[in-house]
Write a protein that binds this DNA or RNA. Structure first.
Length: 309
DNA sequence: CTCGATCCCTGGACGC
DNA sequence: TGCGTCCAGGGATCGA
């Protein structure tokens, strides 16, 4: 399941293998995960893929503008100002793959999009469950889309992290998964970082101490960097753009380890549902938050203010 | 504001 | 071998 480290791994792979190539043609098969399929068919042929980078869990394929690329086969001038106001956004969802193939290679099942490149290879998008997403966006629409997302967890500083997390009464697990708070964190790295920081997933953001906030921010960053170094976690079928699985799953301390013992304290690892997602944590070193004061069982207190701030 | 429920979708695990 | 059932999960959406 591609989260930040996996998407980063794929993006780096694509940057190394298909950046600079020109898209000659586009073939669409299933399109229900594409925002505007017609726009992709119409606008992408002829474009250069200038650069591929990760944005949260998205891959951003920056496309060269038409004018600069009028001459077919013209070398890309690295120094030339790049028009980054046009991009293809690709979200891999749960099971998405985007990788170059030689045309002789048989089309994998669930290959929904093929971009034929100017060197004869095909950049193919495969996604059995179609939980992914693809969108061609330009100008204000692109800016607007990207602005919906929160801070990059690799770069967010203490102040901003605290501002985004501490102000909320949502549970920390929900906040970590909320792409509008932080972009790129998914279920695995949320659980792993909470374990490392010794924070229970159901603890409310507002109730985290400043020490916990900083521990969480730092551990999350360290874990993500280590996972990128190991080319991501391959728990189901994740492979990078070159078809190679990652190795970080070997370092998972709680994720997928329900019933086993905690490598830190030996207590049992439990799995509960928080924010609608399975959450793995240690019964010993991630103490449950104090039960929220129950409205039902409290005796009637002061009349509720009728004004709504 | 925050919550859970529901939907999307397919493959893999499991039980018989 | 082959079926049926359950489950996983990112994200959108909706009602509570």
């Amino acid at each position: 399941m591609p989260e930040l480290p996996e998407v980063e791994t794929v993006a780096r792979g694509l940057q190394a293998t298909v950046a600079g190539r020109r898209i000659l043609s586009v073939t669409l098969r299933k399109t229900d995960f594409i925002d505007d399929p017609a726009a992709i068919e119409r606008e992408l042929p002829g474009r250069h893929i200038v650069k591929i980078e990760r944005f949260g869990k998205f891959m951003l394929l920056q496309l060269g503008n038409r004018m600069a690329l009028a001459a077919p086969g013209a070398a890309i001038d690295e120094a030339a100002p790049v028009d980054v106001s046009e991009a293809l956004l690709v979200h891999l969802g749960m099971t998405g793959h985007l990788a170059p193939h030689v045309p002789e290679q048989p089309l994998a099942k669930h290959t929904h999009v093929t971009f034929t490149l100017d060197d004869g290879r095909e950049l193919r998008y495969t996604d059995p469950r179609r939980f992914g997403r693809m969108a061609y966006l330009t100008g204000a629409a692109l800016t607007e889309e990207l602005e919906r997302f929160g801070a990059d967890p690799l770069h967010v500083d203490a102040e901003e992290f605290a501002r985004r997390v501490h102000a909320s009464r949502a549970r920390i697990k929900a906040l970590l998964l909320d792409q509008g708070v932080l972009r790129g964190v998914g279920n695995i790295y949320a659980d792993e970082s909470l374990w490392k920081a010794k924070i229970h997933p159901a603890k409310t953001g507002a109730r985290l101490t400043s020490a916990e906030l900083e521990a969480l921010r730092k551990e999350l960053r360290k874990i993500l960097l280590k996972a990128i170094e190991l080319r991501g976690s391959s728990v189901s079928d994740f492979v990078d753009a070159g078809g190679i699985p990652g190795d970080y799953q070997q370092y998972h301390k709680v994720y997928g380890r329900e019933g086993q013992s905690c490598p830190r304290c030996g207590a049992k690892i439990k799995r509960i549902i928080v924010a609608g997602r399975s959450s793995h944590f240690c019964l010993g070193c991630q103490p449950a938050p104090r039960a929220r004061p129950s409205r039902k069982n409290t005796k009637p207190n002061r009349p509720r203010a009728t004004s709504n701030r």
